[in-house]
Computed example of a mutant assay.
Amino acid sequence: MTTPSGWSDQISAWISLYGPAVKGFFLRRLRHQPAEADDLMQEVFLRLLKRRSDTVIDRPEQYIFQTAANVLRDYLRQGQVRRRTEHDELADEIEDTGFTPERVLLGRDRLNRLLAALETLDERTRAVFVLHHFDAMKQTEVAQHLGISLSTVEKSLARANKVLIELKEKVGDS
Results as ranks from 00 to 15, higher is better:
120 T>V: 02
95 E>S: 11
168 K>S: 11
93 E>T: 11
80 Q>M: 02
42 Q>K: 10
163 V>G: 03
119 E>M: 12
164 L>F: 04
48 L>D: 10
54 D>R: 04
114 L>P: 08
28 R>N: 12
33 Q>P: 04
151 S>T: 13
15 I>D: 08
53 S>K: 07
94 I>K: 09
126 R>H: 00
18 Y>T: 06
101 P>W: 12
116 A>N: 03
155 K>D: 11
32 H>W: 03
111 L>F: 02
158 A>S: 08
65 F>A: 12
163 V>C: 06
66 Q>I: 09
23 K>D: 02
131 L>H: 06
171 V>W: 04
39 D>I: 00
163 V>S: 04
141 E>C: 09
9 D>Y: 13
167 L>H: 03
35 A>Q: 00
147 G>N: 14
6 G>F: 12
157 L>Y: 15
153 V>S: 08
45 F>M: 01
64 I>T: 07
168 K>G: 07
32 H>G: 07
119 E>A: 15
72 L>V: 03
50 K>M: 14
171 V>M: 07
120 T>P: 01
171 V>K: 05
15 I>T: 14
155 K>A: 13
131 L>M: 11
74 D>H: 12
21 A>Q: 09
173 D>T: 02
86 E>A: 02
49 L>R: 08
127 A>K: 10
138 K>G: 05
29 R>I: 13
64 I>G: 04
9 D>K: 14
87 H>Y: 00
2 T>R: 05
25 F>Y: 15
145 H>S: 15
104 V>A: 07
63 Y>T: 04
165 I>Q: 11
30 L>F: 04
30 L>M: 08
42 Q>M: 12
2 T>D: 10
106 L>D: 08
60 P>Q: 08
34 P>E: 01
167 L>T: 05
55 T>A: 11
118 L>Y: 11
111 L>N: 09
135 D>W: 05
162 K>S: 05
103 R>Q: 09
81 V>P: 05
102 E>L: 14
147 G>D: 14
63 Y>L: 03
22 V>I: 10
19 G>T: 13
95 E>W: 08
